[in-house]
Design a protein around this nucleic acid. Structure first.
Length: 476
DNA sequence: TTAAAGTCAATAGA
DNA sequence: TCTATTGACTTTAA
């Protein structure tokens, strides 16, 4: 119902109020924690929303999200981070009371926000909440109060626990397992968290480089060689792909904002800028992943290395990157474990690589993994790392393409102010700002490289899929 | 079914 | 403590 245009003004009004009014829910809950934790998981998608908006009946958060104009996710997170740090408020508190998310999720969200048009409705929710929170003049105070209350509750618990030992423990859901009491052994033994060794990660990365979307068979082989469960390998690929993608998003956003020169980094500046440039290419950068429809969009090798190195840092990564660098011209190297994945040779190994990872190519994973890139690579090296090399080297071939870069740009879905109509305008005012996707300046060469690599990958996959014959037709 | 998106939650680091 | 990372799980689309 709220959908209808006419209601927009009303909506705005109620929303405004909503944002402004103190949240009773929060105030009353003595231990924010329980409130949070009690959040009905099931209702998640439902309109019921615990958290700050709860008391409000007018619009559900989902409706708000649906009506929200395009938000500058990067700008929002930036501001949120500032407010939190300036006021010494933690992510946990903020996440649990304002967003209904755990600390880790908040951290991730704040560090790597995806562009608005890349978010699903569900994914936009936290950003809308953040925006509303930012608009709330009492936001900090409320959170501070929460913090105080939590502390108080904690102290209380502690005291009581001293006197009456265990009782409270169970009730406190969470925070106090610090010491005490071994939680009853009854816990089903949770399966221990798998922690991949650096060498394993490297091996997986290398495999990814060769084939971002490995076949079941390849996965099986990888699992066997690394002595991991198949599901772990599958999960790893899923996670890696998606994380790489996000990494790319933010890099582009940042690159874009930087290149914008003059303007300060203030979000507003950025947004206005974005708004202008927006039209077509606004998201082009962001869309690096390629054709929406084709699942095989692909993350690209190059980017992958950067992102990986960046996000994970660490010697291993560095080594990896170095290796890649080497690969660019030739091949990586390293090894170590008996069973390794591909590659080969050696010399390159050391330098950066603290660890050595992996293995040689036992037998070529023939089938797919390795041989995948039939044509591209210059086979120079042949066997061993031919495949990977090909991906990397492919870059050169793309260079030319780079110039034409816009291809990837798929207009960002949302935004389009025009279409929006007044509804969006009013909502925009509601949210207190206007935003458009960030615009990027492709000047940045590294970015270009990534894009090129990305294209490379995409093309390659497409060609392969089409048994390469008409790949040519695809105009990019 | 597969992949992506979104999260959780354990845990590593500071 | 707090934040960052990341393997696993759940949900959603296609």
């Amino acid at each position: 119902a709220p959908e209808s245009p006419m209601s927009s003004s009303e909506s705005v009004k109620s929303l405004t109020e909503l944002v402004q009014q103190p949240c009773p829910a929060i105030e009353t809950s003595k231990d924010g924690k329980s409130q949070e934790s009690s959040e009905p998981p099931a209702s998640e998608s439902q309109s019921t929303t615990p958290l700050p908006l709860s008391g409000h009946s007018a619009l559900s958060i989902q409706e708000l999200v649906a009506m929200s104009p395009e938000l500058d996710t990067y700008g929002i997170t930036k501001r949120v981070k500032e407010v939190l740090t300036d006021n010494n408020l933690g992510q946990r508190l903020f996440g649990e009371t304002i967003l209904g998310l755990t600390q880790g999720s908040v951290s991730d969200l704040l560090a790597r926000p995806k562009p608005w048009h890349k978010l699903s409705l569900k994914g936009r929710e936290p950003f809308v909440r953040m925006q509303l929170w930012l608009n709330d003049p009492n936001n900090v105070e409320k959170l501070m109060d929460m913090k105080r209350m939590e502390k108080k509750a904690y102290m209380k618990r502690r005291h009581s626990s001293v006197s009456d030992s265990q009782s409270c423990e169970s009730s406190s859901a969470g925070i106090d397992y610090s010491q005490g009491a071994s939680p009853q052994p009854q816990h089903q033994l949770k399966k221990p968290r798998v922690v991949l060794a650096p060498e394993e990660k490297e091996a997986l990365k290398r495999a990814y480089q060769q084939k971002p979307y490995p076949s079941p068979k390849t996965i099986e082989e990888l699992a066997t060689q690394l002595n991991l469960k198949t599901s772990t390998v599958i999960n790893w690929f899923h996670n890696y792909r998606s994380r790489i993608r996000r990494e790319l998003f933010i890099e582009e956003i940042q690159a874009g904002s930087q290149s914008q020169a003059g303007s300060s980094d203030s979000p507003s500046a950025r947004s206005s800028r974005a708004a202008h440039s927006s039209e077509g290419d606004s998201c082009d950068g962001v869309d690096a992943e390629g054709p929406p429809e084709g699942k095989p969009s692909g993350p690209e090798a190059d980017e992958f290395s950067n992102a990986a190195a960046k996000s994970q840092g660490g010697p291993a990564e560095a080594a990896f990157e170095a290796g890649e660098e080497a690969l660019r011209g030739a091949r990586p190297s390293e090894r170590a474990e008996p069973e390794s994945l591909e590659d080969t040779d050696d010399e390159g190994r050391p330098r950066a690589a603290p660890r050595q990872s992996s293995p040689p190519a036992p037998q070529q994973r023939q089938g797919d993994a390795l041989e995948t890139l039939p044509n591209s690579a210059t086979e120079g090296d042949a066997s061993t790392s031919a495949a990977s090399t090909s991906v990397l080297t492919g870059e050169s071939s793309y260079k030319s393409k780079e110039s034409s870069e816009k291809i990837s740009s798929v207009p960002s879905t949302s935004s389009t102010p025009g279409a929006g109509s007044q509804k969006s305008n009013s909502l925009q005012s509601l949210f207190g700002f206007s935003e458009a996707a960030s615009s990027r300046n492709t000047r940045d060469s590294s970015l270009r490289k990534k894009k090129a690599a990305n294209l490379n990958n995409i093309i390659h996959r497409l060609e392969k899929a089409a048994s390469r014959e008409e790949a040519v037709e695809w105009e990019f």
